[in-house]
């Protein structure tokens, strides 16, 4: 059942980066900008790919939950957090400063405690 976990992890990272890519240029400034923005978002092919991946992932996640304890499987996904953060830098030229690294370190450490129970 490990393959379910691993594929769920990879698919989740791809879909989250896809979502960010699709909405990165949108500017939700007022209530009236919501509909044009969502239409613009829906016209980007990436959003459909990301959406499909998210649906696949939802089903995979259902399988993960059938086989693992929620409090074990869930924190394991903190691996995603680190990879997504690096993805932000690589694909969207985001700044990864000391605050973000230290904060991420604390969160990952906390998640490791959750996974392994120590």
């Amino acid at each position: 059942m490990i393959w379910v976990l691993v594929s769920s992890l990879i698919i989740r990272i791809c879909s989250d980066l896809g979502f960010k890519f699709a909405v990165n240029r949108l500017n939700f400034d007022s209530a009236s900008s919501v509909i044009p923005n969502f239409l613009k978002m829906l016209s980007t092919p990436v959003i459909w790919i990301a959406g499909l991946l998210a649906i696949c992932n939802f089903w995979l996640w259902g399988m993960v939950l059938s086989n693992f304890d929620l409090s074990f499987a869930y924190p394991l996904f903190s691996i995603c957090f680190v990879l997504i953060m690096i993805g932000g830098k690589v694909f969207f030229q985001e700044q990864l400063d000391t605050y973000k690294w230290v904060g991420m370190g604390l969160i990952s450490f906390g998640s490791l405690i959750l996974v392994f129970g120590l």
């Binding site: 909405v23 939700f28 997504i84 932000g88 985001e94 700044q95 904060g103």
Partner: peptide, 13 residues
């Protein structure tokens, strides 16, 4: 909406 406003590395954690 949140994702369009914030950096991924800020919002995601």
């Amino acid at each position: 909406v949140g994702l369009s406003k914030f950096e991924l590395s800020y919002a995601y954690p």
